[in-house]
Amino acid sequence: MVEVARPWRPDAATAAERIDWPAAFGTRFLVFVDVEEEFDWSAPLDRRHRSTRAMRAFPAAHRRFAEAGVGLACMVDHPVAVDPASVAILAACAEDGRSEIGAQLHAWVTPPHEEVVDPITSHAGNLPLALETAKLDRLTDAIARGFGQSPRIFRSGRYGLGPHSLALLASRGYRIDSSMRALHHYGQQGGMDFRAIDAHAFRRDAMIELPLTTVDTGLAHMFGGWLHDAAGRVPHGRGVLSRLGVLNRVPLTPEGVGVADALAAIDRAVADGVRLLTFSFHSPTLEPGHTPYVRNAADRALFDRWWDRVFDRLARHGVGPTTIADVLTVLDG
């Protein structure tokens, strides 16, 4: 494992930064998809891995979301943006009037290739600002050429947002970032420390930040901050707390999160007053064999059932889907 000596840790949102959603907005949710190439998640990153064959599974998955009235925020990385077949698939999906094409910066497969690929440089925010800028510009230009318009939503691959990234994005015309995974710490993977970031949306550096929703559930959820850290210093400590129903830190994703945990997290987020819940998954998960989460047809069926149960629970809470366009209209109003 490689650990950054002092990983960047953004400050918690202040009361002034926290978005005060209008009452008419209610409580809504978004689904982000990291639309990317396939690679071996257990192997070192390699910029030669640029296959996008799994995109053939995207149209059927999109139809299923569309039938549920849910648009997809498609966060497209460079190998996908320069592949004509993938662009055609995504452009057709975006015609549903609810989905949107955004950008996802996988630093190691995005030119210019000036850095040595390793866990630290795979997080774009760790790169020199000039190189992070050059990669962002190449990605933005590729998406603009492929889809006929510049993206306005962004995610840094591996949640690799850095101290200068938000201001850089704003200068390039981006409006929304979703690179912060609430309550997570990636120092042991060469990345950032988001433990001070909770699930609530906020504004900073002229950008709207929509963190990937993560909440603490369990009997001791209110002590999640220090208890989760303390349990991490004990072998299997976090697993024990989770099994006992004491504390469980749950991101809203079908990847590695069981449906019972996801439903509990939805209940907790709503109870905590989170007004915009954000879900996320990776496009290669849609075809068995590319990610650890869907290895076979049975796993793929479980993936669909996960969403069925989640959409049902959201509906019970009166939480409906929204779109990037709607979010911006509300916040610009």
Rank of each mutant, 00 (worst) to 15 (best):
G218C: 10
H200P: 02
A16K: 13
D77M: 12
E132T: 08
L331M: 02
L314T: 09
L30V: 12
E132P: 04
T213F: 10
L277Y: 10
S122Q: 11
A264D: 15
P7T: 03
D267E: 10
M55H: 14
G245Q: 01
P284Q: 11
F39G: 04
V234P: 00
E209W: 03
A297E: 15
L161M: 14
L161G: 00
N248D: 15
D229H: 14
A265P: 00
E37K: 04
D198P: 08
R172T: 03
G162P: 02
R172K: 11
I101T: 07
R9P: 07
H200S: 04
V246H: 02
P22H: 12
F32L: 14
G333Q: 14
P112E: 07
P292S: 04
V259F: 02
R18T: 15
R145D: 13
N126I: 06
I143H: 11
T14Y: 10
D40Y: 08
V4W: 09
R309S: 15
H164P: 01
V294I: 14
A297H: 08
G245F: 13
S150E: 13
F25T: 03
E36A: 07
W108V: 02
A60E: 15
A23L: 13
I101Y: 00
W21L: 07
G237V: 04
A61D: 06
I208G: 05
G173R: 01
H236F: 15
R181L: 14
H123D: 01
R313C: 09
P251C: 08
L166T: 01
L136P: 04
W108S: 10
N248F: 03
I266Y: 08
L169T: 00
A24R: 15
A107H: 01
A66W: 06
P211T: 06
A13W: 01
R204V: 00
H200R: 12
R204G: 01
D193V: 06
E114S: 03
R48F: 13
A103P: 00
E95R: 15
G225I: 02
V70N: 04
G224V: 04
A124F: 01
R203Y: 02
E3G: 13
A142G: 13
V33S: 07
R203W: 08
V117P: 03
L247K: 05
R53L: 12
P111G: 13
S165T: 13
N126S: 09
E115K: 05
W41I: 03
E209K: 06
I266L: 07
S42H: 11
T214W: 09
V257Y: 01
L241A: 02
A325D: 09
